[in-house]
Computed example of a mutant assay.
Amino acid sequence: MSDSPDTEMEIVHLLRAVTVELSRRNADFAVRNGMHPTDVRALICLMDARRAGADMTAGRLGAELGLHSAGTTGLIDRLERLGHVRRVRDEHDRRRVLIEIDERAVALGRSFFGPLIERVVELLQEYDEQQLAAVKGFLGGVLDHAREAADAPGSR
């Protein structure tokens, strides 16, 4: 535990600065590739679902992005036209349509964000297991609290 409120607020301000800078990078990627920032968030959701081995339906994607049905359909149509996603029938339930990210979208993201990701990984390699666990715990806690705040009554 820190005894210094100054250090704690310095970390909060650094986290805010990182968030702003990453948002700027996401917006730059979107503009360069003819997308809306929400399109980039959708692609991230799809990559996260794929990495977790989870199916992604239009309904689930819309819920994760906070979009209504028509907005979700428009987003998926736009990403499909750009060649970033495809709609496929669920092989276990043919009535269900899944949204899958195309490898070209992954490669496009890797070409833009790859150098930053590599630098972050290099930075993390300088930390020992205990430090990595602290960083992971801190970021996980911030994420949990941010999600709770977003779900709180009156937050939208």
Rank of each mutant, 00 (worst) to 15 (best):
53 G>D: 02
134 A>H: 05
131 Q>V: 11
141 G>F: 01
24 R>F: 08
135 V>H: 10
147 R>L: 13
121 V>K: 09
124 L>T: 14
129 E>C: 02
71 G>K: 00
149 A>H: 05
21 E>H: 02
38 T>N: 03
131 Q>T: 06
78 R>P: 04
8 E>Q: 13
108 L>T: 04
138 F>V: 12
40 V>Q: 01
104 R>C: 10
128 D>H: 11
109 G>D: 02
156 R>M: 00
43 L>Q: 07
83 G>H: 08
23 S>C: 06
42 A>K: 02
107 A>D: 12
135 V>R: 05
46 L>N: 01
27 A>F: 13
85 V>I: 01
129 E>A: 14
57 T>G: 03
50 R>H: 08
49 A>G: 07
41 R>H: 12
126 E>N: 09
22 L>C: 10
127 Y>T: 04
55 D>I: 12
47 M>V: 09
6 D>K: 09
131 Q>H: 06
43 L>T: 11
130 Q>F: 05
32 R>K: 14
105 A>C: 00
62 G>C: 04
29 F>K: 06
140 G>T: 08
73 T>L: 06
84 H>Y: 06
10 E>Q: 12
57 T>V: 01
143 L>Q: 09
16 R>M: 10
27 A>V: 12
48 D>W: 05
46 L>F: 04
108 L>Q: 06
77 D>F: 01
98 L>E: 01
9 M>S: 10
31 V>F: 06
56 M>Y: 09
55 D>Q: 03
42 A>H: 00
64 E>T: 06
123 L>M: 14
107 A>H: 09
89 R>E: 03
34 G>E: 04
15 L>K: 11
113 F>A: 13
139 L>R: 04
